[in-house]
């Protein structure tokens, strides 16, 4: 099978083939998930060079640990867990902070405002993130921006599902309140 043919395969099938020696197919996994891993790097390190280095390191770690992937979670969840742990270790090693768990960056990159979001959406997300304790910001971030489920976020971060749920609930409530009475409301009620 060519690398082109791998586009139709599920992540887990590609992992099996890579473990059987089709190393070249790992490129497909990188192409599929690099934006998420890079985005995670941007959130932790706040600049593109570090985020790219981080993403490469995460994929190399994933490649060398591929034999330990047992398919109990989605490949992307497993990959992001490697990324989360790696980011925590890197930040600890650089004495940037006490670690990801203690202080997840408050300022978003590239920032909701810069993401061409509607103003009310951007403001609500910023406020929701700012209102959370540092270590829980990542839950809202993963839920809103990466589309991960409560269970997946719990798998990655190690936080209890109910804790994640309550923080996302609060953030969603703030988002809903912000959208009330906005131009969006008028649009949807038309």
């Amino acid at each position: 099978m060519s690398e082109k043919g791998a586009e139709a395969l599920a992540d887990e099938r590609i992992v099996t083939l890579v473990l059987r020696g089709r190393t070249d197919l790992f490129r497909e996994l990188v192409k599929r998930h690099q934006r998420r891993v890079h985005y995670m790097g941007m959130r932790f390190f706040r600049n593109d060079d570090d985020a790219r280095d981080f993403a490469q390191e995460v994929f190399m770690k994933a490649y060398t640990a591929l034999g330990s992937f047992r398919g109990e979670s989605r490949f992307v969840t497993w990959l992001l867990r490697i990324g989360f742990n790696h980011a925590a270790n890197r930040r600890r090693a650089s004495h940037d902070t006490a670690g990801v768990e203690e202080d997840y960056p408050e300022s978003r990159y590239p920032g909701p405002e810069a993401l061409s979001l509607r103003a009310e959406t951007a403001e609500a997300v910023s406020r929701a993130l700012a209102s959370l304790p540092g270590k829980y910001r990542i839950c809202v971030d993963f839920f809103f921006f990466m589309g991960l489920s409560y269970g997946e976020i719990s798998d990655i971060t190690g936080f209890p599902v109910n804790t994640i749920k309550s923080h996302v609930f609060r953030a969603k409530g703030m988002l809903r309140d912000a959208l009330r009475g906005s131009a969006a409301e008028e649009y949807h009620e038309m």
Partner: peptide
């Protein structure tokens, strides 16, 4: 909207 715009380029 958030999911669509948030990821890297």
């Amino acid at each position: 909207e958030l999911k669509a715009v948030a990821l890297s380029p």
